[in-house]
Amino acid sequence: MTVLTAVANAAEAAAVLPAAAAEAARRNSDLHVLDLTSGRDTQALAAALEAARAELGPDGRAVVVTEPSIPDHATAALVAADETSADVLVIGVRRRSPVGKLVMGSVAQSILLDADCPVLAVRV
């Protein structure tokens, strides 16, 4: 069993990783983190990962961190969910205006619509 989460920045990591770790602990599952930060915010991500490891406790559940080979974040998260056979995908969402969605698109919306597994959306 695997809980997959994707984080793209420090604010997202701080909000999403605790929720993903809690979900993994509840499900007694491993936590797989897809690091979409491209090398940014490494200290904040490391701190959030340590907190996630502490949430899972010493029971041997794994916290695996990988970087995607696909540049599109939505596609990378969906492919990782398939590759890890994720039971649930935890993502961060933020409020955007209708015009912002039209101009910029929405990674979260693509994931919510196209994921084959349940998606837990956490407000960032």
Rank of each mutant, 00 (worst) to 15 (best):
D72E: 15
D82V: 11
M1Q: 14
D59M: 09
V107F: 08
P118M: 07
L34H: 07
R26K: 15
R123K: 12
M104S: 11
S29H: 12
V79P: 03
S97H: 06
M1P: 14
D116C: 07
G92K: 06
A24T: 01
G105T: 05
A74E: 03
G39K: 12
A20H: 00
V3C: 00
A10H: 05
V79D: 11
V64Q: 11
A108I: 01
T75E: 15
E50P: 03
S110H: 15
R27Y: 13
L56R: 00
H32A: 13
L49H: 04
A74P: 01
A46N: 11
T37N: 08
P71A: 07
A76V: 07
A77F: 04
D116N: 10
V16I: 06
A108H: 02
R95T: 13
S29N: 11
D116I: 04
M104V: 04
V119R: 00
L56M: 07
A81C: 08
V122M: 00
S97L: 09
V124I: 13
A25R: 04
V7Y: 03
D116H: 14
A14C: 09
T2Y: 12
A81I: 00
G105Q: 02
E23N: 02
A77L: 08
A25G: 06
T66K: 00
E12Q: 15
L49I: 09
S97I: 06
L34S: 01
D82P: 03
S85A: 15
L120W: 10
Q109A: 15
A19M: 04
A54C: 07
V122A: 02
R53L: 02
L102K: 06
E83R: 08
A51T: 14
R61M: 08
A10S: 10
T5L: 03
A22K: 01
S110W: 02
A81Y: 08
P18Q: 11
S110G: 14
A8M: 12
T66R: 12
Q43H: 13
V63E: 10
